[in-house]
């Protein structure tokens, strides 16, 4: 027993994802059935769903095969810790909050830095938005280096197994928000927690909604760091990528952005700075300005809307 409650052995913490997997499958089947019977809003398509589920299964395998490097890094950081924070229910709760902010920034980097986007884009590659989309996860996260964002928490003194535990809990929370079946919750809940409404915005390809609502569990991080956009009933979300995929092949889905980066970097006549920018600049950046980043897409969308408003006013006059 410690000041923070009963001591827990971090090595014996369960894997929340493994525990929740049978429920994920069950809820996908229930949502699919109810959507089909038109009892719930939503849309399912066989090949899209199959691709999402294969991506989810592959991500578990990828996590085991490639996740070791990240865990070793966390153990190394933990060996150099400033203090030791005992694993107790209260310290796990505190860690969950800190890790949720870590998730927010990691997620934000995943949308703003192309190298990380190459991993995360897989999760956004479906044109559908349902519970199976939640399971569409990348296979190569272990090589992205995103685990480096967890090292400060290990350096402070949280055990790496506890870090993995709360990270997985966060992902389990996010499963249920991938649905069109739920409208909005009471205002207090929408103000604090990430909800289906907030996350629909995050998955939308409409220019207005790009790069918003990065939260894992608590939407307060988006409100705090200026990336919150509420769902606008006048502009329903269209899901997927700015340039949608023309394949359901899981291997291509898993690797397409890495291939895109390699093709871009291998172009002739680029400077080292330009080659680096193809890794580190926001997705959509190009050395010759032939493509558009999300900021440019948003700007153009706003200009278009203003232009349309002017035209409408003139027509009314």
């Amino acid at each position: 027993m410690s000041f923070f409650g009963p001591l827990l052995d971090p090595a014996t913490l369960p894997d929340p994802k493994q525990v929740a997997t049978p429920l994920f499958i069950l809820f996908v089947l229930i949502e699919l059935t109810l959507v089909h019977r038109r009892r719930l809003k939503g849309d399912y398509e066989t090949r899209d769903t199959l691709t999402s589920l294969i991506m989810g299964t592959g991500s578990v395998l990828g996590g085991v095969l490639l996740g070791g490097l990240g865990y070793l890094c966390l153990l190394g950081a933990y060996d150099m810790r400033l203090t030791t924070i005992q694993t107790t229910p209260l310290s796990l709760f505190l860690l969950f909050l800190l890790d949720d902010m870590r998730f927010y920034w990691g997620h934000r980097f995943s949308h703003r830095i192309r190298w990380f986007w190459a991993d995360h884009v897989i999760h956004h590659s479906s044109q559908h938005y349902n519970l199976s989309t939640a399971l569409r996860q990348p296979w190569l996260s272990g090589i992205s280096g995103m685990f480096l964002l967890q090292t400060p928490l290990a350096l402070i003194g949280f055990h790496p197994a506890a870090l993995v535990f709360v990270g997985a809990l966060n992902l389990v929370y996010q499963f249920w928000i991938h649905t069109e079946a739920v409208g909005r919750f009471p205002r207090w809940f929408e103000a604090v927690f990430n909800t289906p409404s907030h996350h629909r915005v995050h998955h939308a390809r409409n220019a207005k909604y790009l790069d918003a609502n990065y939260a894992g569990t608590l939407i307060v991080w988006d409100r705090l760091f200026g990336s919150f956009i509420p769902e606008d009933d006048a502009e329903p979300a269209e899901y997927g990528l700015v340039k949608n995929l023309g394949t359901f092949n899981p291997l291509r889905v898993a690797t397409h952005e890495y291939v895109g980066i390699l093709k871009d970097v291998a172009q002739r006549g680029l400077t080292i700075r330009q080659r680096l920018a193809y890794f580190l600049a926001p997705p959509g950046w190009s050395h010759d300005g032939s493509r558009m980043t999300s900021d440019e897409l948003k700007r153009r969308d706003e200009e278009r809307k203003k232009q349309n408003e002017k035209t409408t006013v003139r027509a009314a006059d």
Binding site: Q18, L32, H36, T49, L50, I54, T57, V60
Partner: peptide, 23 residues
């Protein structure tokens, strides 16, 4: 075992979706 069960679940859900006419 996890991978085998996962792939079996993928097949079952896809077959069910197809049977419902979602293809």
């Amino acid at each position: 075992v996890f991978i085998a069960v996962g792939l079996a679940a993928c097949a079952v859900i896809a077959a069910y979706a197809h049977w419902l006419g979602r293809s």
